[in-house]
Structure formats: C-alpha cells, structure tokens
Design a protein around this nucleic acid. Structure first.
Lengths: 344, 344
DNA sequence: TTGAAAGCGCTACCAA
DNA sequence: TTGGTAGCGCTTTCAA
C-alpha cells in the first residue's frame, strides 16, 4: 500500500456525504423538481415512465432517503405527534394502551414520537417539546401547566391533550381520575360490611399521582358510613410488608385496599405469614386486574380499570388537529369496575 | 357582528403565525444574526448588555421557541439518538434500563427519541428512521439487517447499535444472548439431579426471540448428561396451564424451566392445584427475578438477568459518534445468575 | 458591536 | 413533460 504524499489519509474512512435529491437529479440527468415529483408521486404532474424509472434507479443506487426535517420545514408543518415518555413507572396496562394509540395514529398517517424528557420540568420541558414543532402533543400525567400549553400552541401545536388527573386550561383533557378506583374499592369494602378500612399508599416516588386520588376516593366512598380510613404507607419490599403485617392486629383493620394487585399480593402474603385470615379477618382488594390475582389463594378481588381505546384517543387527536379552533374537549375516560373474587 | 364583504372570516380563530427569529429581530430592532448570537450565547461574538436585554425581552414577549428542524438542517447534523420502540412486550427490567440510558445520554447532551414504528418492518423501517437523520440509532430486538444498517449509515447515522440476539454486519452489537439464561437454568436443574426437563415456550407472538434461545440454552446445558428436554408450548391463561398440569404425570417430567417468573407462577399454581408437589416431584425455575417469585410458596427459584448499565451503553454510543470510523464493537452484555430458592 | 447574505434539503409555483 | 427558482427558519462567515 503506497501512501500518496500531500494527500493525507483521513483518520476515519472517507465519510461520503449523504446523498440529497440534487445528487439523485444529477445522476438521473433531470432537475430536482422532477425528482421531487417522481418520488412523491405528485398527482398534479405527469412524468414520463422512462424518466420515472431513471429517477427511481438513481435514488436506489445512491441509497437516497429524503430528509424529514427539510421536508417539514418547507411544508410548514409536520404530522408528528409528540408524546413525552412518562417518567413514572407505568404498568403493562398503560403500555398496551400506548401501542394501540400508536397503531391508530399511524393509520391516520401521523408519526408518533416519544420524547424522553428526563431532568426537564414544567415549562422547560414544554419548550423542548415545542422546538420539535409537533402538530399535536399528548402529555401523560400532570406537570404541564397552562403556561406550557400556551407555549406549545404558540409554536404551532394544533392539539394539546393531557392524560391525567386534571384539566389544564387550553388543552383537551382525557381525565383519568383515579379517585374512581378508590371509590369503587371503598364502596365494595363497605358493602361487604367492612368498617375499618386500610389504604396502602406506596412509598415509591412518582406514584403519588395515582395513590393520592385513590386514597381520596376511598375516603369519599366511606364518608358518612361511619367507617374509618387508615393510610398505610408501604414500600415494595418484603420486610416492609412483614413489619406492617406484624402490627396488623394492633391496627384493628377489617379491610384493605392495597393500591394495586402487586402491592396486594405483597401485603396478602405478609398477612397470611402473620396468621391473619383473608378474607375472614381482613378483606383485601387490589386494582388493575392482573393475571397474577387469579393465581393467588384466595383469589384476589380487584378493581378492573378501563382505559380509553387508543383508537378513540387517536380520533380525538385527529379531530383536534383538523379543527384547532374548536373548544377543548374533556372526557372522563377512566372506568373502574369491581371484580370480586375470594379475598373480599 | 358585521361581516365585511370580500374578506371572509376564517372558520377557526385567526391562527397567529408562529414567531420566528426574524420576528424577534424586528421587535428588538436588531438583525436576525444578533438574535441568534444572543439566544445561543455565542462566545465568539460580544453583544452589548442593552442589546442582549432587548433581544431576550422580545423573545419572551413573542413566546419565541427556536425551530429544531431548521437549526439542525443548517447545522448539518443533530444530536438525536433514535430508538425504535420495541414492538415486543418488554418487562419492567427493560424499561428501567431504558430510563437509565435516557438519563445518561441526556447528560451527554443527546436527545433521545423513541419512534413508534408499528406496521413497518425490515428495511422499510430503517428508511423511516433514516429520514429523521439521527446521529445514532439504537435498535432493540432483531429485525434490522445489514441492508438496514447500510441505509442508516448512508444517511448520516454515525453509530448504529443493535441490542439483540445476534451481530449485524456494520453495526455495533450489545449481544443479549438468551441462550445463557436457558443454559443457567438447565445446568442448575441437572445439578439438582433432574433428568427429564420441561421447557415452557410461550405461545404469545413476539416472544420467540427470547424463548427460542432460552430453549436452546437448556438443550445445550443438558447435552451429554443423558437428561431429556421437552418443549412445552403454553399460553398465558389459567385454562392452558390447567390443561398442561393435567397431563403432567403422563409427561413424567421432574424439572421445568418456565420461561420467566410469570409463566412460572402460572404453571406452579396449576401444578399445585393438580396435586403435583413442587419441588419434590417437579422442580420449577423461572427467570427475571421478580419480587413476585419471593412471595410464592414455595419461593420461586429464578435466573437473575443482568442487563448492561445504561451509562455504559451511553458511553458506547458517544464513543461511536465521535469515532465513526472505528470498527464495530461487540459486547456480550447479558449476565445470567441462578437465584436458588425453594422451588428447585 | 452589528448587519447582510449565503445556504442547509426540500417542494411547489410558474414558465418553457 | 420538465426546469428554474423562491423560500421555509436558522446559523455563521465576512464586511462594515
């Protein structure tokens, strides 16, 4: 191998420049306009078959891929639906909902992008999202304020939809009020004759958004019935559950809503190990209706939670994008239904 | 309200145009260049304090947010790391790994974007990703071929990293060979004196990527020991598990690797209901080391799986981006460790 | 210290 | 049927 003087070899192998539509045009011997027409199948313009073929071949030979940013810059809009990745650990429920949503939006020709905004918060995050000029933004959880909505709209977002516990000024809202979950559980326990009800509140950070309203829902259900509500902080660890179970009799509870099925299993195991009979001595109910619960003995009662169908949300988004002037819609979308098994 | 003739009122309220840096410049009474200098804190240029203030005020008043696409178009590159959202249902393990990765890349000033590519497959998907001109692409699972890697590199991706079962020509690889998981389980069961080993293979679609190599790993571990391996297709449903358990004695198995802890729980419950003693009659081992397993009785033995740290992957990405010419690295990153409890 | 202007890749209007 | 070209919003070089 001979080194050619005065022609330094780059440390890394020559980075061939990324081919542009101009390169395709050059190779095919046509103009950039023609390339654009051919590759986009522009119906307003008729290009001869031989030309089409030449363009397609040139594009293929060069490995040409259009530049989405340039395209949407030119077009003045994009079809990007931005969804900040939830920072909270969400369950399989949520991820199935998300897949469904993604599919439905895809069928409506939107591109769904999840944006990881760890470390950013509040309006700072909204800014970061706005930089991408999405046509719509779906924000799970709380954390976006009216300011944030304004920033997004100001920068061209035609639809902002929040999926969370409360409405935000200016945005469409899919209200997922977990109060209902607690309310169902509380009502159920009361109906089963339980008078001293415990409510597990996970100590894991980030879960307060769900656990607070669930607790409040139980309280609301029990208000006026004479039954009491006792908050039970619990970390998702065996030892913590064992400690809680050890003082169970002292607490004198005859029913417990365990936040969800996983915490319910944790607690139920600890209670059984401590000799507390379920459901005789204490009724236990979870939430989420996981397969898990059916496998426990006694089979776990649970609150089945229904999320909106991804298709419905996709349609809301599409409607909002088409009619950006329309007033924000608010939908209560969280359904809660008791599935009684043997633990309550 | 009077309609002004020949000046139709738009159906939706006047969409104020999105403010650009030119608008900011106009309002502040400076040039667009100055706006750019100020807002980007360009150190090569000194702008007087009063001017800076005027620019900042104008930007704030207008609610100006820079246009990321325009910026990266001009710059000729982006700091976007693209990660196609896995189409396979992944566990909590994976999502924690992902959060970690996201944080680490964020600290290195990369922007992580998850792209939902449902419906696209193979090179079609690679094209879609390439349109976004990411500086790096992290591809979980299989499905990306050498062609796809080439497409991505041609369109400017400086690093392509696969996270999956096998190497792909031209891409860095974080090999997560689930063969190891099965091998650990198989070795363990053999060491516990089990000679007729069943291996649960989930029937849920999409899981083959994991289940096949796990099965193969068990076979590899048992080869030459005289022990047999029996494939046990199983749907994640109580009835399916009950049917399997009903013919358990006919199968004559004395050990089973249940794919993961969830299937293990499903199967173990069915076995116990059918009167099969665990571990005396049949040893059961799962995988993933979920909390779940510790709560079962007998406590579930499991294969603890270690994924690479998100920080390590982030560093690999950063290295690859800085030195795109470097030969692809391959790392075996999946650690498998037996956690013996009481079910085996 | 500030401004004018070129140009990133693309599409769509208007002319030829 | 095809080509020339303006311009989307931004940064950066060069000049003033």
């Amino acid at each position: 191998m001979v080194q050619i003087p005065n022609q330094p070899v780059p440390a890394s192998p020559a980075q061939r420049p990324v081919p542009t539509s101009a390169d395709v045009a050059r190779l095919a011997g046509v103009s950039r306009a023609t390339v654009s027409y051919v590759l986009n199948n522009t119906s307003a313009v008729r290009i001869s078959e031989p030309t089409r073929r030449r363009v397609h071949e040139a594009a293929r030979d060069l490995g040409y891929v259009p530049h989405a940013a340039a395209r949407s810059l030119r077009a003045g809009h994009s079809r990007m639906v931005l969804m900040p990745a939830p920072t909270v650990p969400v369950g399989p429920l949520h991820s199935r909902f998300f897949d469904e949503l993604q599919g439905a939006l895809g069928r409506l020709e939107y591109t769904v992008v999840q944006y990881g905004s760890v470390g950013l918060r509040g309006d700072e995050a909204a800014r970061a999202w706005a930089e991408l000029r999405p046509v719509a933004v779906l924000v799970p959880g709380s954390g976006l304020g009216p300011q944030g909505v304004a920033v997004l709209k100001r920068s061209g977002a035609r639809a902002v939809v929040t999926l969370g516990p409360e409405r935000v000024e200016g945005a469409h809202a899919l209200l997922m009020d977990h109060d209902r979950v607690g309310h169902s559980a509380g009502t159920h326990l009361a109906a089963r004759g339980r008078r001293r009800v415990g409510v597990v509140v996970p100590q894991e950070p980030g879960l307060e958004i769900f656990s607070r309203p669930r607790l409040a829902g139980v309280r609301r259900a029990l208000r006026g019935t004479g039954a009491t509500t006792t908050e039970l902080p619990l970390a998702y660890e065996e030892e913590a559950a064992a400690r809680l179970a050890a003082r169970w009799r002292a607490l004198g509870l005859d029913g417990v809503f365990a936040y969800n099925d996983e915490y319910a299993m944790l607690l139920m195991r600890a209670l059984q190990d401590a000799g507390v009979a379920v459901p005789e001595e204490t009724a236990v109910i979870g939430a989420d209706d996981l397969m898990l619960g059916r496998l426990l003995r006694p089979r776990l009662s649970t609150v089945h939670i229904e999320l909106p169908s991804g298709r419905d949300l996709a349609e809301l988004v599409d409607r909002a994008v088409r009619e950006p002037g329309a007033p924000p819609e608010t939908h209560e979308v969280l359904g809660a239904r008791i599935v009684q098994r043997d633990s309550s």
